[in-house]
Design a protein around this nucleic acid. Structure first.
Length: 485
RNA sequence: GCGGAAGUAGCUCACCUGGUAGAGCGACAGCUUCCCAAGCUGUAGGUAGCGGGUUCGAGUCCCGUCUUCCGCUCCA
């Protein structure tokens, strides 16, 4: 059902019903940046809260922190983000092949050297180093043209301008530019956890194995950011780093892999929409990695990553900060002696909150059509969002807006506010109001009618089945609470 | 980045070969209505993405630019 739907219909629906708007729309928008509207923000918060609770409250051995987005610049030197992503690149317009500028020129220098033109080769490299040091991209391009360096695929020298694809956004710390130091907006929340490792471990007197969880915004200057909120330049992560004794990491890796998959199922995602995708090519810091993929309208794509990151990050921070980042393990090993000092290994679970929102919305979005009794067409668009994360849990509707029905409905809404979000609406026909609630995904509608005045009962309508039952006014709150637990 | 398509009211779209912008739905106010939108009345809402050019006159023709979508490319 949901996967037959056109992705653009989902995007339109999100905008029309207050879930997601293009950022800065009145100024023509900002590419790959989106704002969460009143309903989207609530849905997102509900998912985030559920994750936080399941990670921290329900795991005695995991604590949560909230590290700053700004971090000392050396953090990103240590993590590898500065060096791995600052190379100037150039594209050949004919072959569409992208080259790192330094590698392209060096290859040419090697060729010159092999042809016996040693001096020319050395001169070229010297000039290149000078230009790179000055970030003189125009000069570098000219150097490529002057030397008639060609693309090995197309054989042409038809080059684009040189661009630097920085993964990280930077800004200045301090209000006086010039004196200011360049700092970065974090490209992942994980480093905040690693940098605070000792603070948390010591103040919490935490014993390995234990985890540190965190949710928060991260920023990546993607070259191409597409597919709605799937790949955005500003996005929110929910990450948990689980620190373990070296040698046990693969056991924990398996355990978290399955625990996380079960979590997504418990959230309401059907098993057939989820799958594991093992990484065959591992990043330099990992010794095992898997993605949990979800079947989006545009195919199976990564929702969450689970990585065994070894002791790479803590070791790097130990090197760059020159502070010992170790854990003293007092437990006895097989030889009867304590395990002693070591740098813990880490299993990371990292899920994209925005991707999870998109997964839930695309899963929930359903267009239904049927015939009325008189043969005419009827239908509805409904967001079948799992009740526990739906923005509004209940709508309370007086059947007509007279005869004292609105007053009874108002009283009921007031009673609900303590426990969950409830929506009051008296405008338009009852059917129209049901449709509106379907469209924003409200799981229950209670209607106050004339019978309510006689016996204190109301009808409660189920969003997904459109069936109704009569229950007592006093049962409304407990009924809804039961369904959203 | 390359190729293709599109930008007119909140949404979907119309205005054919240039003559000062229109519909349906939606929204709002009121009426009606005893359970699944598209009954009635009224109201609001657009300098036609933006900039420039041609013209007596441009939503309509031309150029540029921005944005979005689709495909390719890229994505530690």
């Amino acid at each position: 059902m949901a996967n037959e739907n056109n992705f653009s219909d989902i995007i339109s629906h999100c905008k029309e019903y207050g879930y997601l708007f293009p950022s800065s729309e009145i100024y023509d928008g900002l590419s790959a940046v989106y704002d969460y509207g009143q309903n989207g923000a609530q849905l997102k918060k509900n998912i985030r809260d559920l994750w936080w609770k399941s990670m921290t409250q329900m795991h005695e051995d995991i604590v949560g922190i909230d590290a700053a987005i700004f971090m000392h610049p050396l953090t990103w030197k240590a993590s590898g983000h500065v060096d791995n992503f600052s190379d100037p690149m150039i594209d050949n317009k004919d072959s569409k092949k992208r080259y790192r500028v330094d590698q392209l020129i060096e290859a040419h220098a090697d060729k010159l050297a092999s042809e016996g033109k040693k001096e020319e080769s050395e001169e070229l490299l010297k000039v290149m180093d000078g230009l790179i040091a000055k970030d003189d991209f125009a000069g570098l391009k000219q150097l490529i043209l002057d030397n008639n360096i060609k693309c090995s695929v197309s054989g042409t020298a038809h080059w684009t301008d040189i661009r630097q694809f920085n993964l990280m956004f930077d800004t200045q710390l301090g209000s006086v530019s010039g004196e200011a130091d360049k700092i970065y907006l974090r490209p992942e929340t994980a480093q905040g956890i690693f940098v605070d490792f000792l603070n948390v471990q010591k103040t919490g007197r935490l014993k390995i194995p234990f985890g540190i969880a965190q949710t928060g915004k991260a920023f990546r200057n993607e070259i191409v950011a597409r597919q709605f909120i799937f790949r955005m330049r500003e996005f929110e992560q929910m990450e948990m780093e689980f620190f373990v004794r070296p040698g046990t990491e693969l056991e924990w890796y398996e355990r978290w892999k399955h625990e996380r998959l079960e979590w997504h199922k418990a959230l309401g995602i059907p098993a057939e929409k989820l799958r594991f995708h093992n990484h065959t090519k591992l990043a330099h810091y990992a010794n095992a990695a898997v993605d949990i993929e979800f079947e989006f309208p545009f195919g199976f794509k990564e929702l969450e990553g689970i990585h065994s990151r070894t002791d790479y990050d803590l070791k790097q921070h130990q090197t760059y900060s020159k502070k010992k980042i170790q854990y003293f393990d007092n437990e006895s090993g097989p030889d009867g002696k304590p395990y002693g000092n070591y740098i813990p290994y880490v299993i990371e679970t990292s899920v994209g909150l925005d991707r999870l929102v998109l997964a839930i919305i695309s899963l929930s979005f359903t267009e239904e059509k049927w015939k009325r009794e008189d043969g005419s067409d009827d239908g509805r668009v409904v967001l079948k969002i799992p009740p526990k994360i739906a923005p509004y849990k209940l709508a309370v509707l007086p059947l007509v807006k007279k005869d004292g029905l609105p007053e009874i409905a108002r009283d009921l809404v007031k009673k609900c506010h303590q426990d969950f979000y409830a929506f009051y609406e008296e405008k338009d026909s009852i059917g129209k109001r049901y449709r509106r609630m379907d469209a924003i995904g409200t799981p229950f509608c209670v209607t106050v009618d004339h019978q309510t005045k006689e016996d204190q009962t109301v009808t409660i309508r189920d969003r997904d089945t459109m069936t109704q039952r009569r229950i007592h006014l006093d049962e409304v709150v407990p009924e809804v609470l039961k369904a959203i637990r």
